[in-house]
Nucleic acid binder design. Structure first.
Lengths: 365, 365
DNA sequence: GCCCTTTACGGTAACGTACCCGCAAGCTTA
DNA sequence: TAAGCTTGCGGGTACGTTACCGTAAAGGGC
């Protein structure tokens, strides 16, 4: 038995076929199709109708050849944490490499840390020169003036890795942070069946994603795992020393701690603090993201799970969206929330080569 | 502070700049660059050197315009299970839509079920007419003769959703089935802390993926969750009635069953059997894939997790790889194993719109 | 010497589109 | 009525590449 459901690739017409069909010049057809001046209403209508009838599709190759414009895309990402943001950059580069239609020039700019120096970097680089921009917006207060200064220019900006809903943007790509927190709470509640205390260590709560993760965690804990009681969130401000001390404090205050959710990538000092005090293995730990030092902790089960934010996929998606918009001027979905990957010791091997980034040809896994 | 790491987009030369630099004709340059006949060795070398020196990049737009060849891609996928394979088709279509460079004609062919009628469909459709083929190879025994008949033609074939390692293929895209099984065993072992019996219900074990899932499950159970004892695998052959009866038998024989891993998408009859006998909620269940009927089971926690095989991402990746090969003749990584998504009630909402497929613009989440 | 083939290269017509120039008809204004 | 302007359209060129055709020059066989 055999079923064919062809959609016939029916002939697509060019601009000159329309001209021939209406016995007018291709110049006129061009003006009509592009709503340029110098065509009467009646002719324009006739052209548009015939274009639809003949199934006109502009030939992208010819257009690109003619208006030989290379696109310039500016990418503004933090240097820290390099292992994370380098994967974003790789995703962008990979997507750029597969782009066969239009010529794209990528210009990478860096600033020290998320929310630190990004507006500076943008202003120095010159917003103007880019056809589109990809950025991780850490400090929306600082970025606000820049965005409003260039308002009305409709420069397409795409946010990656974290969002800033107040700023006007073409699109934003992040993982679903609320879901990340929710998954952590869900898993902890499933594994720990009796009542227990749960703590969270987070990063800078002014960054949108961190707050969302916590909200998701708290909400999910209350509904899905009510037998777990949540301790007040500990904000570690991305500093290793802060995080270490906070963890030591925590286990001193709550020696009966059952579980811990580290919602920042800065989990290593926390793990060391737990290990040194003999709590690693006793406390069920869920972390965020993936980097080489974390691998052994997951491998030997001391860290139950880590929620991977898929930097490569984020970069790739952002670039694809931007180019698609620049080519077609059709706006993409404004908010895209990728599903975070749940990294366990059983599927760790699927992510490990990504982390060591020895295989740049690897896909957006 | 501001760090710029531009890789300068330095001027890229065209074919005629090389010609001018060497004071020869562009025809000669073209022949030299494409290793065509009619150029002396010395001139060829000079051209190639100058091409490198001037940073020659062929203008894809111009090339595509000139050799106006549309590519024809044949897609052969089963009809059953529609919700799964339709997502694969959507992924292919989505990738095709973003393809701006070359014109691609997609031709979809279907056959009833995986491994049933696929060789028939291919032979009827005519292997010859396609520049490339995407197929779900269920029955490698039947496909073998077809593949060997056309051996040496180097027709690029990409396998999706399941692999057939014996057949020559350009690439294969599946989820990592071994990891799927491993994740199931890992999670079950984490949630169930005391010794318990674990059963598996699988599909046709002649299909590569099903066997791999079981192997992964057994291996992972032995190493990560040794307190769980694995019962012999039950093969349900994709038939709903079979699956139902098998499940009833199972709980009759093992009323103390602790957990169940359904490694086929055909999990609904199993869930119904458990529900009718009051076992749903007592037995920890992990299923495979996602479809509307499964959603409420996950929502209310009766199914702990489901391992989603990302059909959309598989289709999209397969198409992108195929086109990239056809455009550049550079072979992709032969084996790509995507990480399956772990669907829990806490992240179910991220996948639910995919399942109801009301949003075809959604990404390869 | 002639004729034929081969080799190495020059020249050029497209591919479909965008954009500029030019021209005729109609209209306005002095 | 002449000069100037606007409107509506035709014609042509160029974008970078490929695929031909043409053609000198060199070589080989008679």
């Amino acid at each position: 038995m055999h079923y064919a459901m062809n959609q016939k690739p029916s002939h697509v017409a060019g601009i000159k076929e329309i001209a021939r069909a209406l016995d007018i010049s291709i110049g006129t057809v061009d003006r009509a199709l592009h709503a340029r001046a110098g065509v009467s209403h009646s002719t324009r209508d006739r052209v548009l109708k015939m274009a639809k009838k003949l199934n006109y599709r502009p030939n992208v190759a010819a257009r690109n050849l003619k208006l030989n414009h290379r696109l310039k895309v500016g990418v503004f990402l933090p240097e820290q944490i390099a292992l994370f943001y380098d994967r974003v950059r790789e995703g962008i580069r990979a997507a750029c490499a597969t782009e066969s239609g239009i010529g794209v020039d990528l210009v990478f700019h860096s600033f020290p840390r998320l929310g630190e120096g990004e507006s500076n970097a943008i202003e120095k680089a010159g917003w103007q020169q880019f056809d589109g921009i990809i950025i991780a917006p850490g400090n929306s207060a600082e970025l606000g003036p820049i965005f409003s200064k260039f308002e009305g220019q409709h420069k397409p900006v795409i946010f990656v890795t974290t969002d800033a809903a107040r700023l006007p943007r073409l699109a934003s790509i992040t993982t679903d942070e609320t879901a990340s927190g929710g998954i952590a709470a869900d898993l902890l509640g499933r594994v720990i069946s009796s009542p227990a205390k749960v703590a969270t260590i987070t990063g800078d709560l002014r960054i949108q994603g961190h707050a969302e993760k916590l909200r998701g965690f708290a909400a999910s804990l209350a509904t899905l795992s009510p037998h777990l009681s949540l301790l007040p969130a500990i904000e570690a401000h991305e500093s290793p020393a802060d995080a270490y001390n906070a963890a030591v404090d925590l286990i001193k205050k709550h020696p009966d701690l059952g579980a811990l959710y580290v919602s920042t990538a800065n989990s290593l000092p926390v793990l060391l603090a737990l290990e040194e005090n003999g709590y690693l293995g006793k406390v069920l730990v869920i972390t965020t993201d993936l980097f080489p030092e974390l691998v052994p902790f997951i491998e030997n089960g001391k860290v139950f799970a880590s929620l991977y934010q898929r930097p490569f996929a984020q970069g790739k998606t952002a670039f694809e969206m931007l180019i698609r918009f620049l080519a077609t001027r059709v706006a993409p979905k404004q908010i895209t929330r990728l599903a975070p990957h749940i990294v366990l010791r059983s599927n760790l091997s699927l992510f490990i080569n990504l982390v060591y980034n020895d295989d740049s040809s690897s896909l957006s896994i």
